[in-house]
Each structure stands twice: as C-alpha cells, then as structure tokens.
C-alpha cells in the first residue's frame, strides 16, 4: 500500500520532468532521426541552457528573456559543433564530444566558477517550480509545460513543412539526392544542429527553474535519456502516429513514460537513484539492438527458405 501511495504522489513530478525532458528529446529527434547525425553536444548544451537562465534570473532579468537567452546560447553551441563537423571535417560524434567538453569549462565560467547555482522560487519570480507540482492551480508547472510544448511542436511542424525544412529532411534522408537537387547539405546540417541544441538548452533552462538550480552535471547522460524517449515514443506509437506533429508528440509522451517507469523502478526495493544511469543506458541499448536483431533474424529465415527451395 505504501508502495502505491508513494508511487502515486510521485507521478505529477514525473509528468513535469517528462515534459521538460520531452522538449530535450525533440532536440535529439531532430539530429538523430531527421538529420541522421548522432550529436553529443546536448550533454553540454543542456547545462549551458540551465546556467545561462539561472545566472540571468539572478541578475534580475525577466525569466522569459532568460530562457530566450538560453535558447540562443544553445543555438551557438550547435553552430560550433556544426562548423567543426562540416568545415573542419571532424566526424559528427567527435565534433559533438569536443563541443561538449568546451562547454564544461564555459558553463563553469557562466556560473561564476561554481559547480551549481540556485534560484529559489521564493526570492525570484520563476516561470515554473517543482514546489507547485501537486497543486490544483494555474501555477502548476504541468499546465505551462503542456502549453509550451504544444506551441513548440506547432512551430516545428510549420518549420519542417517549409521549403527550407523539407530540404533539411532531404539532407537527413539522402545526402546524394539532396546535393543533386541543389541543396547545400553542409549548411542544413549546421542549421539542424543549431535548432536541436537551441531546443535542448531551452529544456535545460526550464529544468533549472523547475528544480530551482543549475548544476554543471545536469546534462550528464542527457543524450541517452533523449534517445530513450525517442525510442519509447517510436516503439509505442509507430503504427498510430504518421503525421510529423504527432511523431513529435510521441517523443514527448515517450519521455513522460520514461519518467513514470523510472518512478516505478525507484519504488522497488534494492534500486536507488544511483542505479538510474545504468538502468537507462541498458534500456536504450536493448531497444537500439532490437532492429538489428530483427533484421538478422529475418535474413536468416530468408536464407533458410532459399536453401529448402
């Protein structure tokens, strides 16, 4: 009984966190699925978003302006990775790792050489806070986050439907074709990385306000959580969600489900929060491996069939 009551009381928090990380996962979706680039910048740009947001709010800047600044900082981070990858010919994964490491130092600078910086909701007017997550009122963060995500999804739906957006999708699905149709694939990869990291930093900014602090390590393993959300969303809604906006919604729901599952796991005896990263990485590894084994199995069957013929 204790199990269920404590699980139940943890669900609103899980939903709010899931929504915040859902935004981050949309950023991962843009690089991993649309651009076909594995971008590890996000571990750094998430913390950059949080750091920029918290420091600006502490300096008396309006929280909306603070998250806008975080968005711009993320866009800049994506630009650096993009340039390293396209102009300097560094493989995308390595370019992302390099930027991520640069950001570690930069984030410390932003936070005034501290590993974390707090913004209390009692002292500052924040857009959202963990404190109100159980309240039945307008300041419940779930409300704002839901509206925020719907707006972001609508904007992305429009953007990827435009001529430019279509050319970015073409870049991700077939670079040869894209270039043969006069598309500057390098420019599009940079644009995609900028957009992705902008959203990730925005998610970091929301997260820092929600939890009331920014931390130098808040982005550690973010890419894996983002991937988990993308994969859960795809596995569950692949047949149902064909429309692009719905696919993005599926990613967000994937993130919420991920946090629900995490809450359930945390209620189990033996598991502690220290085990979460291991658990997450294993889940992602299994789901990433499934398509490979499916293919291998199908091939084996086809071969066997031919042998009998």
């Amino acid at each position: 009984m204790v199990f269920f009551t404590s699980l139940f009381s943890s669900l609103p928090g899980a939903a709010a966190q899931g929504l915040i990380w859902g935004l981050m996962a949309i950023g991962v979706y843009i690089t991993f699925r649309i651009l076909d680039v594995a971008d590890l910048t996000v571990d750094g740009s998430l913390a950059t978003g949080g750091a920029v947001c918290v420091m600006l709010i502490k300096a008396g800047v309006d929280p909306w302006l603070a998250i806008l600044a975080a968005l711009l900082a993320g866009i800049l981070a994506g630009f650096v990775t993009g340039i390293l990858h396209t102009c300097a010919g560094i493989p995308a994964i390595l370019a992302g790792i390099l930027t991520q490491l640069m950001l570690y130092s930069i984030n410390l600078r932003i936070m005034g050489s501290a590993a974390n910086q707090a913004v209390s909701v009692t002292k500052y007017s924040l857009l959202l806070s963990q404190r109100y997550v159980h309240e039945f009122s307008f300041r419940n963060p779930i409300l704002l986050l839901t509206a925020f995500l719907l707006v972001i999804i609508a904007i992305l739906y429009w953007l990827f439907g435009t001529e430019l957006g279509a050319s970015i999708r073409a870049t991700g699905t077939n670079r040869h074709m894209a270039r043969a149709q006069g598309i500057n694939t390098n420019k599009n990869i940079v644009l995609g990385l900028m957009l992705s990291n902008g959203l990730v930093a925005l998610s970091g900014a929301l997260l820092s306000q929600y939890q009331g602090f920014a931390d130098i390590n808040m982005g550690r393993g973010a890419i894996v959580i983002g991937l988990a959300a993308v994969i859960i969303g795809e596995v569950l809604f692949d047949k149902l969600f064909k429309n692009f906006a719905l696919k993005l919604l599926g990613v967000v729901i994937g993130a919420v489900i991920y946090y629900f599952v995490i809450q359930i796991v945390l209620q189990l005896p033996f598991f502690s929060t220290n085990d979460l990263k291991l658990f997450t990485a294993l889940v992602v590894a299994v789901f990433l491996a499934i398509p490979y084994f499916k293919k291998k199995f199908a091939k084996g069957k086809a071969k066997g069939g031919a042998g009998h013929a």
Binding site: L159, G161, T162, E163, L164, G165, A166, S167, R169, A170, T173, N174, M177, A178, Q181, G182, I183
Partner: peptide, 25 residues
C-alpha cells in the same frame, strides 16, 4: 528521398537552383 512523399520529392526538385525559404513546401 525514401522517407519523404512522392509530392515532397518533386517539390524539392522543382526548387532546384532557387532560394529555399520559409514558404510552405
């Protein structure tokens, strides 16, 4: 582009050599 629709593919080709902006595809 395999993951895109027939009409989307043609639209991409129809804008070859032109500026690709924020008009609907």
């Amino acid at each position: 582009a395999p993951t895109m629709q027939i009409e989307e593919n043609i639209a991409l080709a129809a804008r070859r050599g032109q500026h690709r902006g924020l008009r609907w595809g």
